[in-house]
Amino acid sequence: MYIHATHSISRAQSLGDKVGGNNAALKGEKLAAYPDYTTYIPASIRRRMSVGVRMGVTCAKALGELGSAHSVIVGTGMGCIIESVNFMNDIKAASAVSPTSFIQSVHNTVAGQIAINMQNTGYNMTFSHGGFSFESALKDAQILCQEGQAVLVGGVEEYSETYAEFEGMNNEDLSEGASFFNVSSREAGAIAKVSLIDHLSCTPGGEETALLNYTQAKGIVAPQHISKGQSVPGASMGDGYSDICGIYMSNAAFGLYLACQQIKDHNSIAIVNRFNDHNCGLTIVAKP
């Protein structure tokens, strides 16, 4: 599966030469650096969009027109959590409840809004499997590419202070963001190749060994560079991409975005994303 273009919105403004540098300044930054939405989405449409929908639709628009053989897949752990919380507040207060909040509480809102705003009527899917949401979306994209489709695939997550408090995650380095990719099975013009999407069974600290065993068992060359991160709070993965973008369920998408920037310096990169105590998402990116 080949990546042709990417677009990302995160708390890291723009990386370029800063990739791999000291990202300590980013730590604790909860909100993404939002672009000027007026360039992408007219006010009359934007007004009803939650944070996640704005980020997702902007990424989609930044990546250009979707052809008729295009599909849209989104991975999101919590969907539009801000609006869901607003709705729960309304219920708790026993006041009239907002239909707009309810509509956006459905996890496939971002994918649906991308379809409406890009006028795309093709395959449209949303995966919501905690910290493995993005890899699930990518897996489906891989199947679609095999089936001859081009895919707009991405990960989106919102930061909600109320929800963070509710789950007792206030002390964690949480953030939000959206990273999207135009993928297909066409090699010409690609910027990177996704050669494998799977998961690694391993406990914290055992990632490198597990990866080595995995690649040996599969008879593939072990990637030169391992890009580690975590999509849920818990055992620290050490220095990794989640230090740059923050912790949120679909941040493996940011890991892939970063890998696309870095692939010129390595033969292949393994994005290892810890999403629970005994599993990591594994995405291997290679030069196209």
């Binding site: 009359s44 009803r48 006041s95 009239a96 409840v97 907002s98 239909p99 707009t100 509509i103």
Partner: peptide, 17 residues
């Protein structure tokens, strides 16, 4: 103003709130 059916529902919520 170009409002739509969802806006109508939101205005109903506004009247109640």
């Amino acid at each position: 103003l170009g409002l739509d059916s969802i806006d109508a529902l939101e205005l109903i919520v506004m009247l109640e709130k």
